[in-house]
Design a protein around this nucleic acid. Structure first.
Lengths: 205, 205
DNA sequence: CCTACCGATCGGTAGG
DNA sequence: CCTACCGATCGGTAGG
């Protein structure tokens, strides 16, 4: 029920604001740990004002999840990755993905909450849409640069690449509070180096 | 308040049973999604019977978390890893770690729940104890086999190795419900191959 | 007829 | 280890 104009209606502004504050509360407290009253308060609404915009709590979470899911950053990063060699393309893609999400590593929390408290129902639905796109991009790169890749199947190519993405953020989450990890960009470069050396059949520089 | 005998007391049996059923409920529903009444019912206790064993809900979770945390499997796997070359040792270590946890991939849920709903307080405390052990093991391997490793700092060596561990389970969690991932052991072997090729300065086999 | 919202209250459940 | 409860708060809805 969106208007045709590009200036959002008063209702749409409120709706966007609800999603923003709900996102911030969910990633800090989880789904069951956040009450509709907290969301309403944070959005400067009465509780029943909140119910004018969303039929229920699950609907709020669903929209928050879809709007703030990392695929919003990951797919564009992969599509726009540039470089002459496969090495440059992969490095550029990973750097774009991680740079885009560095400012809000809480995207992991959102995914975790959905897995645990929503039983991955939205994630599975979303992934069914994303996976073909992922495979298509991987196929393009694979066909063009197969000669420089070690013998790796496409599924493992996709899985290991996305695995590096998660590997980086999860170990950052676990190691960084205490351990003497090297500075962020440095660590990413080194982990990328290991990966590139692992998938390419010619030594990196 | 443990007895000296090796046959657990009646109270200890009840206590262990509570932790078992609580674990099963927490990993399915999360912390805030699980009530003390549910735990009591599953343990065939009245609600206040549960409170005879644990002062509160957070204490139940804390003990469940510490008892079922993957470090219980990861540290032994690393310590007992065997092989003549560093390649064999690393492969054996990762295979032991993953085999030990393959039967209950829900350990990820437990970690996610703790991160989100407990703000990582137990995880940080635990990791402060584990990290020195991890670094010590890594140091031993590093000193003995440095000539076969590409120039990688110890922190990155540890981080990338643990990263592969998480990479495997997280992508399994995300990809396996829909995507045509290769069979599990096959995928692990291939991801391990990429990693070994990435960290070693001589080609694998 | 619409939107955006209110104060008050519903039946049940939370941890204790 | 139980029955019987508590203060408060939960997600959701009433009429206006």
């Amino acid at each position: 029920m969106q208007t045709m104009t590009d200036t959002p209606s008063r209702g749409e502004i409120t709706r966007q604001n609800i999603k923003k504050v709900a996102h911030d509360l969910f990633i800090k407290q989880g789904y069951h740990g956040t009450s509709m009253r907290q969301i309403a308060n944070a959005a400067n609404l009465a509780l029943s004002g909140l119910y004018n915009h969303f039929p229920g709590k699950e609907d709020v979470f669903r929209e928050v999840f879809l709007q703030f899911h990392p695929y919003q950053e990951v797919i564009p990063a992969l599509s726009e990755a540039q470089g002459d060699s496969i090495e440059e393309i992969l490095r550029d893609a990973m750097n774009r993905m991680i740079t885009a999400l560095q400012n809000r590593p809480q995207f992991l929390n959102l995914m975790f909450i959905e897995i645990i408290e929503m039983n991955s129902i939205h994630a599975n639905e979303l992934f069914a849409r994303i996976f073909p796109v992922l495979t298509h991009i991987a196929n393009d790169i694979y066909q063009k640069h197969q000669d420089r890749l070690r013998p790796i199947s496409i599924p493992i190519f996709v899985r290991s690449f996305m695995g590096l993405f998660f590997s980086y953020f999860i170990t950052e989450l676990i190691f960084s509070p205490r351990a003497p990890v090297s500075s962020t960009q440095n660590a990413l470069d080194q982990m990328l180096n290991i990966y590139m050396h692992g998938v390419l059949n010619q030594p990196t520089e």
